[in-house]
Design a protein around this nucleic acid. Sequence first.
DNA 1: AACCAGGACGTGA
DNA 2: TCACGTCATGGT
Length: 231
Amino acid sequence: MTTLERLYANLLEAYGPQGWWPVLDFAGTNPTKTGSVHGYHPGRYDFPRNERERFEICVGAILTQNTAWPNVEQALRRLKKAGRLTPNELLAIPLSELKVAIRPSGYYNVKAKKLLEFTRFYLSLHGRTPTRAELLEVWGVGPETADSIRLYAYGELEMVVDAYTRRFLSALRLAPPEASLEQVRAWCGRQLPPSVPAYQEFHALMVEHGKRCYSRKPYRDALFGAGAVNG
DNA sequence: AACCAGGACGTGA
DNA sequence: TCACGTCATGGT
């Protein structure tokens, strides 16, 4: 068992299954979560259950770039309420109307453009699963967004690593501070068993732990991270 | 009432 | 490559 596997097991025990990626209109809740409690499905790994949910996850992945999830959830609800949460519906919106709908998630000018770019790409796939390289070619889709889409929207085995993960692992000295996100990502991929549910849960746990202990500025309780390793 | 969030892009060195 | 500025709303 690798150190990262042990870390994963301890975080899972501490926080419980996170139920990522959240989707609208799912009745389940996760009472252990601090922020929004809607749409999470702890312990279930059969999402997305249909094309509608798949596209919604993609849209959420773009809207959540450097943005707190409750803001994204508002934007998704506004899109849905306006009947614009499918690819063709979204492409049919006047640009100004799209910006108004997604305003709560911030950066609405760039994100509106990103959504349109991605949606065109999404339709061009005709249901096929995009490769990571293909996703990275889309304007507005960077490494974390591409990996999140692969892992959560398409259920592909893709490691997702974010700023929290890098801070956490470097604080534990599992990764050098100067390691790039890509290096950390490759390393994590080698340390965990190749399981889609495990990858999904791992990233969700890293975000939850990051929010609690590795928020920017002073790390609130970095010692807990070390404790999580040693048990 | 600052501070920051589940990043990515454009630019200049 | 890489560091830095920019994008913006809402929660704490």
